[in-house]
Computed example of a mutant assay.
Amino acid sequence: MFRYKFTIEYDGAAANAGWQVQPGKISIQSLLSDAAFELSKSKILFYGSGRTDRGVHALGQVAHADFFKSYPLFSLKQGMNFYLTGKKVAIKEVELVSQDFHARFSAKIKTYRYDICMQDYPNVINLKNWRISRNLDIKKMEEESKFLLGVHDFASFRSSHCQAATSIRSIDEINFIIRGNILSVYFVGKSFLHNQIRAMIGTLVDIGMGRQINIKSIMQSKDRKKAGQTAPPGGLFLEKIDFD
C-alpha cells in the first residue's frame, strides 16, 4: 500500500453533506473517493484532518488515502483533478508519506478564516462572505475576543449536535485583518468543536453591533443560549493545517 497526503481546495457548495460521507448525500469525501476509483479502479477511502460542515469552504484541507499501487505525484494530482472537473473540488498538492502519517492525528495546528463584508447593498463580488449592512465596532470585538484565547471550556459555543467527548479546547491566536470593507477574522488552534467558530463569530458580531453581552460571562455560563447567533457557513474557510 502507498499512502498519499492530499492538500485540497473546495467550495462548500460542492457538497450538501459537508466533508463527511452521509447516505444519499454528496460529500467532499465521497467526491474524492469517486475520483480515485475512476483513476485506480479500486475503492479508496480518504481520511480528512477535519470535518467541515455543509457550506464551509477549504483552501488547505488535508486528507490521506492508501492506494494499491505507486503513482508519480504529478500524474496522481492531474488524474484526480481530471475526474474532479466541474465538482468544485481541486487537488492542490500530493505527497508520498509514511504509513505513520494520519491526516487527523498528525495535525498540530489548524487555521480558519471567517470573512465578513460590511456594506449596505447586496454582495456581487464577495458572494461567499457574510454581509453585515452596517459598520461594526471592531475595536470592541478585538477586546472581547481576548477572553477566548487559551485553554477553556467552550460549552457556550458548542452545537447541540456536537459529538466531542469534551468541550475543553485551546485557541492560540485570534487575528483581525481589514481589507477595504472586508473583515477577516483568523482563528488558530489544534481543534475546534462543531460550529464553535461560527458561534464565536456570531457572538463577536453581536458585540460589534452593540449588543450588551460579554465573552467572559458567556464562557462562565456554559450555556449556548447566552452566546450570540451562529454565523452562516459561507464566510468560513479552512485556511491551512500545519503538521510540524
Rank of each mutant, 00 (worst) to 15 (best):
P23G: 11
P23Y: 03
K25C: 07
S27C: 06
S27Y: 13
L31I: 02
L32F: 04
L32A: 10
L32H: 10
S33F: 04
S33Q: 13
S33C: 12
D34M: 03
A35V: 00
A36I: 07
A36W: 10
F37M: 13
F37E: 07
F37W: 11
E38L: 12
L39Q: 10
S40N: 15
S40I: 14
K41L: 08
K41G: 01
S42H: 13
S42R: 13
K43R: 14
K43W: 05
G48E: 12
G48M: 05
G48A: 15
G50M: 05
R51D: 07
R51P: 13
R51T: 14
T52W: 10
D53V: 06
D53L: 03
R54D: 01
G55M: 09
G55P: 01
V56L: 02
H57Y: 05
H57E: 06
L59R: 15
L59K: 15
G60I: 02
Q61W: 00
V62Y: 01
V62P: 01
A63H: 01
H64Y: 01
H64R: 04
A65P: 00
A65Y: 01
A65K: 01
A65M: 02
D66M: 07
F67A: 03
S70T: 10
S70K: 15
P72I: 00
L73C: 08
F74A: 13
S75I: 01
L76M: 03
L76W: 09
K77E: 03
Q78P: 02
G79R: 04
G79L: 05
G79T: 12
M80R: 06
M80G: 06
M80W: 05
F82V: 06
Y83R: 04
L84V: 04
L84Y: 03
L84I: 07
T85I: 05
T85N: 12
G86P: 09
K87M: 04
K87G: 02
K88F: 03
K88S: 05
A90E: 08
A90Y: 08
K92S: 04
K92L: 15
K92C: 13
K92P: 03
E93N: 11
V94P: 05
E95I: 00
E95L: 07
L96F: 00
V97S: 08
S98E: 10
Q99H: 15
Q99F: 10
D100A: 09
D100S: 14
D100Q: 11
F101V: 01
F101I: 00
H102L: 12
H102G: 14
H102P: 01
H102W: 08
A103G: 11
R104G: 02
R104Y: 06
F105E: 11
F105S: 08
S106N: 12
A107R: 08
A107I: 12
K108P: 00
I109M: 15
K110H: 14
K110I: 08
K110E: 13
Y112L: 12
Y112K: 09
Y112C: 10
R113H: 05
I116E: 13
I116H: 08
I116C: 10
C117I: 12
M118A: 05
M118L: 14
D120F: 05
D120S: 15
D120L: 06
D120A: 08
P122R: 06
P122V: 01
N123C: 07
V124A: 09
V124L: 10
V124Q: 09
I125N: 06
N126E: 14
K128S: 08
K128F: 11
N129V: 05
W130C: 07
W130R: 03
R131I: 12
I132M: 11
S133Y: 06
S133M: 10
S133R: 11
R134E: 15
